[in-house]
Simulated assay, not measured.
Amino acid sequence: MPSLILVIVIFFSSFTFADEAGLFAAADSEVEAQVELFEFASPEHQKRAIELAKSLRCPQCQNQNLVESNSPIAKDLRLIVFEKINAGQDEQQVIDFMTARYGEFVLYKPSFRLTNALLWLSPILLLIGFILFSLKSVRSSSNQE
Rank of each mutant, 00 (worst) to 15 (best):
M1A: 09
S3F: 14
S3C: 03
S3T: 12
I5G: 09
L6S: 14
V7I: 15
V9G: 10
F11V: 11
F12W: 14
S13M: 11
F15M: 07
F15D: 05
T16I: 15
F17Q: 02
A18L: 07
A18N: 05
A18P: 03
A18V: 01
A18G: 12
D19S: 12
D19H: 11
E20I: 15
A21I: 02
G22K: 06
G22M: 07
G22I: 04
F24E: 01
A25I: 02
A27F: 06
D28C: 08
S29T: 13
E30A: 10
V31Q: 07
E32W: 03
A33K: 12
A33G: 00
Q34M: 14
Q34G: 01
Q34I: 01
E36Y: 07
L37D: 14
F38K: 11
F38Q: 10
A41W: 01
P43N: 14
E44V: 14
H45M: 04
H45S: 12
A49Q: 09
A49M: 10
I50E: 15
I50N: 13
L52D: 13
S55Q: 04
L56K: 01
Q60C: 07
Q60Y: 06
C61F: 02
Q62D: 07
Q62H: 10
S69W: 00
S69T: 02
S71F: 04
P72A: 15
P72T: 11
I73Q: 15
A74P: 04
K75S: 06
K75H: 02
D76G: 08
L79T: 10
V81L: 10
V81M: 09
F82N: 09
E83P: 00
I85M: 11
I85E: 02
N86Q: 12
G88V: 07
G88A: 08
Q89C: 01
Q92E: 13
Q93W: 00
V94C: 03
V94G: 07
D96W: 01
D96G: 01
F97W: 13
F97S: 04
F97P: 00
M98K: 02
T99I: 13
T99C: 03
R101Q: 15
G103H: 08
F105H: 03
V106Y: 09
F112H: 00
F112W: 09
F112Q: 00
F112V: 10
L114C: 00
T115S: 15
N116Y: 06
N116V: 08
L118G: 11
L119I: 09
L119F: 12
L119W: 12
W120F: 15
L121A: 12
P123S: 05
P123D: 02
I124R: 10
I124Q: 06
I124F: 15
L126H: 04
L127K: 08
G129P: 09
G129A: 15
F130W: 08
F130K: 00
I131Q: 03
L132H: 01
L132S: 10
S134Q: 05
S134K: 08
S134G: 06
K136V: 07
S137P: 00
V138Q: 01
R139G: 00
R139S: 10
R139A: 14
S140P: 00
S140Y: 04
S141T: 08
S141E: 02
N143M: 06
N143S: 12
Q144V: 08
